[in-house]
C-alpha cells in the first residue's frame, strides 16, 4: 500500500527530465541499505550457525536474498523461513550470495534496492530478514521493517539467542 504513495520528488523530476531527453537511462534508484549482522559468541558451542539474510516486500514475498552462510545443504531447511520462502525455489541464483559459515563477529552487508532480476524496487515498505540456526543450538529469526522513499533510517534490533543486534541503515540515495 505505502509503496504506491511515496513518489519522491527527485524521481518525478528525473522522469520529467527523461521525457525532455535530458537524462538518459531511468535510474529509478532506491535508497541503499546497509545491514550489519552480528554472530554472537556462544560459550561451549563451537558450531558455527547457518545464517541467511534476505529482503521481503510488504506482502511477505521475497525480493532478494543477500547472503547464505552454510556448509551442508541438508541443514539449509533449518533456516526455516528462508528455506520455505526462498531457498527451496533456488534456480541457481543463490550461488552468488552463498558462502561458508562465519565465526562470531560483525559482518557488513548491503542491499542496492534491486530484486533478483536486477530491477530497482518501488519505494515503500520492505522487511529485512535475518535467520540463524545452529547445530546443538537454536534458531533465531529477526524481521525488521524499513521504508524506502526519501528518508534516512537507522535501526538496531534486539539481540536474540543466535543473533546479536542487527544494525540497519537506510542511506540517502548516492550522489545526494
Amino acid at each position: 500500500m505505502k509503496r504506491r504513495i511515496a513518489v519522491p520528488g527527485v524521481a518525478v523530476l528525473g522522469m520529467a527530465l527523461m521525457g525532455m531527453g535530458i537524462m538518459k537511462s531511468p535510474p529509478v534508484q532506491a535508497q541503499p541499505v546497509e545491514i550489519a549482522v552480528t554472530i554472537p559468541e556462544i560459550p561451549n558451542n563451537a558450531y558455527r550457525p547457518y545464517v541467511s539474510v534476505w529482503i521481503e516486500d510488504a506482502n511477505d514475498d521475497v525480493v532478494t536474498t543477500l547472503a547464505v552462510w552454510s556448509k551442508e545443504p541438508d541443514w539449509l531447511k533449518d533456516m526455516r523461513r528462508w528455506w520455505r520462502k526462498a531457498g527451496r525455489y533456488d534456480q541457481g541464483d543463490l550461488d552468488s550470495v552463498s558462502g561458508a559459515t562465519r565465526k562470531p563477529g560483525r559482518y557488513n552487508l548491503s542491499w542496492d534496492g534491486m530484486d533478483t532480476s536486477g530491477n530497482a524496487v518501488a519505494p515503500g515498505t520492505y522487511v529485512v530478514n535475518v535467520e540463524a540456526a545452529r547445530e546443538h543450538g537454536g534458531r533465531s529469526l529477526v524481521r525488521q521493517e524499513i521504508t524506502l522513499g526519501d528518508k534516512e533510517q537507522h535501526l538496531i534490533t534486539e539481540p536474540q539467542e543466535e543473533l546479536g543486534e542487527i544494525e540497519i541503515s537506510v542511506k540517502s540515495k548516492s550522489g545526494e
Binding site: P73, L76, K77, W83, G87, R88
Partner: peptide, 9 residues
C-alpha cells in the same frame, strides 16, 4: 516432511 538435501536421502 521437508528436505533440503541435494543428494538422495
Amino acid at each position: 516432511f521437508n528436505l533440503s538435501t541435494e543428494e538422495s536421502f
